[in-house]
């Protein structure tokens, strides 16, 4: 976790607008598909879940694992990018 991915930087750099859920760091094509199947088609829907869990890292990680089977790294990436996005834009 010493450096952040390009995807993370891209996501955190600007308001998320209508970006798809796959724009989130840690969410690739496979996880993105699964999330879309569950109705989380846009990044802001995941943000909503993130916020309704009160930005709690553990709960969000659990939720992400249950919803799309994300592994620990993917959970961490996704959490980190949403957290940072909130810190600068919320």
């Amino acid at each position: 976790m010493s450096s952040t991915s390009q995807k993370h930087k891209d996501f955190v750099a600007e308001p998320m607008g209508e970006k798809s859920v796959m724009a989130l760091a840690g969410i690739g094509e496979v996880l993105g598909k699964r999330l879309e199947e569950k109705g989380f088609d846009k990044a802001y829907v995941v943000l909503g879940q993130f916020l309704v869990l009160k930005k709690d890292e553990e709960l969000f990680r659990d939720w992400l694992k249950d919803t799309c089977g994300a592994n620990v790294k993917q959970q961490g990436d996704c959490y980190g990018c949403l957290k940072e996005w909130c810190d600068s834009f919320l």
């Binding site: 879940q49 309704v52 869990l53 709960l59 939720w63 249950d66």
Partner: peptide, 9 residues
């Protein structure tokens, strides 16, 4: 959407 998470918790 959060109930499952809290139940687990």
């Amino acid at each position: 959407s959060t109930r499952a998470v809290y139940e687990k918790k």
